[in-house]
Nucleic acid binder design. Sequence first.
DNA 1: TCACTTATCGGTAACGGTTACTGATTAGTT
DNA 2: AACTAATCAGTAACCGTTACCGATAAGTGA
Lengths: 125, 125
Amino acid sequence: MQTRNTVQRNAVLHTVQAMKNHPTAEEIYLEISRIHPNISRGTVYRNLNFLAEQGVIQKVLIPDAADRFDFNISEHYHFKCSECGRVFDADIPYQRNINEKVADKHGFSVTGHMIVFSGICNSCK
Amino acid sequence: MQTRNTVQRNAVLHTVQAMKNHPTAEEIYLEISRIHPNISRGTVYRNLNFLAEQGVIQKVLIPDAADRFDFNISEHYHFKCSECGRVFDADIPYQRNINEKVADKHGFSVTGHMIVFSGICNSCK
DNA sequence: TCACTTATCGGTAACGGTTACTGATTAGTT
DNA sequence: AACTAATCAGTAACCGTTACCGATAAGTGA
């Protein structure tokens, strides 16, 4: 199956790369709509998942909230403000060793982990 | 506001404490239905949230899946099998220090964090 | 022991976020 | 330029969960 370079797909990619605030699919849709008023939510969702699948962007799963999308595809963690709901990067080193600890303890084959911190962000306190 | 000791609330509590597999609300509902066939899903959800709010049980948020409920209210981590979707405890020490690292780095007031490991469980590999 | 109040109930509708379906387009090949 | 199938816009359906409603029953106080 060949993949195509559509204006919609490019718009989704460039919008994610331009928005550096871990936007939700809806926020990305609203942003793109300003330039492509006819784009469909379904198209945005489809391409976000496609691009994340390809590894060009990253899908960030936030508990109890809509998924976020990140131009930064490196392994890193996030902080969610319980007041305003905004998501920020948590710049601490990736804890690669804890994967092995869990693997050793339980025998699972551990492929990765995610960490989400919670608390109050600077502008909320 | 007084709180009441209803048969439904007790059934929800005891069922969570009896099921040690991080059940979802639906699984708890199905289990209780065997003894209380008329209980409503809404009642199960309401009481699960109530009991979690009280700290009697723990709500475990799993990305991209239904919430789980845990009789074990201590701080601990979880592993989700990407094959069968089951959730297991990940018995490694609670990393209390990383909260401070994030707080120091960003200035946020960090109240906690969650870690979810992913990979393949023993019965799936 | 019996009202009385109101927390909680069962049943169902609505919600938010996301995916699946449809027939119509359109990108990339030949 | 013609062709084919990936992708589109639009909309319906999905899943997990919460909100609503009139009915029920748990705990008080007389």
